[in-house]
Amino acid sequence: MISELANRIFDQVIADYHVHDAIDHPVENPYDSSSLEHLLYLKCWIDTAQWHMEDVVRNPEIDPREGLYWKRRIDRQNQERTDMVEYIDGYYLQKFEGVTPLAGAKVNTESPAWAIDRLSILALKIYHMAQETKREDVSHAHLESCQTKLNILLEQRKDLSKSIDELLSDIESGNKYMKVYKQMKMYNDPNLNPVLYGVKK
């Protein structure tokens, strides 16, 4: 099951990241560069680094110039995240290229990789919510609230994992088919963002 593999790798990534707990620590991907495991590891590493960038930029005492620096880094990181989703979808497009959809086959509302993207973010939510349940400097009410949220996140991961496995099984059997649209982000493109192409003139 792909979800079992993905969840295991995502948990591994988050644990690996927190050994150093440094945004700019170089990624040490243990998987063969041609494998799906490699893509999943790198995907979650990008997400984990961005998670911590988002924490930094929300410091209410951050210097505005530093805040802008982090905002721009987050924009670049988000583009890397999107690119990695497309690489993973590319893997599945190639994997299923020989499958002929059955009559009446339907397209899903999201591609397999965007569902896997949500699974990666869920792994981060689960890790950090679990950390909140272990704090000793907060009230019992805080711990109870966080444990309740953690239980919901764990249930959500279980449901999403099942849905991803079912989606891939349906695509493999021809009951559904993949239709992937490249992300047409405009704000980073100097030819599409009016502010950026206005500056060029």
Rank of each mutant, 00 (worst) to 15 (best):
S3A: 00
E4Y: 02
E4L: 09
A6S: 11
F10T: 00
I14Q: 00
A15T: 10
Y17A: 07
I23M: 08
I23C: 01
H25I: 05
H25K: 11
H25Y: 14
P26R: 06
P26W: 13
V27D: 07
V27M: 14
V27R: 12
V27K: 02
V27P: 06
E28V: 15
N29D: 03
Y31F: 15
S33D: 13
L36A: 03
L36Y: 04
H38K: 03
L40A: 02
L40M: 01
K43C: 00
K43I: 01
W45V: 02
D47C: 11
Q50L: 09
V56C: 09
V57R: 13
V57P: 09
R58S: 09
N59E: 07
N59P: 15
D63A: 15
R65Q: 14
G67Y: 05
G67A: 15
W70K: 14
K71R: 13
R73F: 06
R73M: 12
R76D: 13
Q79Y: 09
E80T: 05
R81L: 13
M84Y: 03
V85M: 10
V85G: 03
E86H: 08
Y87L: 11
Y87F: 09
I88E: 01
G90C: 05
Y92I: 04
L93R: 07
L93Q: 12
Q94N: 10
K95V: 09
K95N: 04
F96N: 13
T100Q: 13
L102P: 04
L102I: 11
A103Q: 14
G104R: 11
A105D: 10
E110M: 04
E110F: 02
P112Y: 01
A115P: 03
I116D: 00
R118G: 09
I121H: 09
L122R: 07
K125S: 11
I126P: 00
H128Q: 11
A130R: 15
Q131S: 08
E132V: 04
K134L: 15
R135A: 04
D137I: 04
S139Y: 06
S139L: 06
H142K: 12
H142N: 05
L143T: 15
E144H: 10
E144Q: 15
N151P: 03
N151W: 10
L154W: 04
E155Q: 14
Q156C: 05
K158V: 05
K158H: 05
L160A: 00
L160K: 01
S161G: 06
E166Q: 14
D170Y: 06
E172F: 08
Y177P: 01
Y177H: 14
Y177F: 15
Q183A: 15
M186S: 10
N188H: 09
N188L: 13
D189P: 08
D189G: 05
D189H: 13
P190H: 07
N193G: 08
P194F: 14
V195E: 06
V195R: 05
Y197P: 02
G198S: 11
G198N: 12
V199R: 12
K200G: 06
K201N: 12
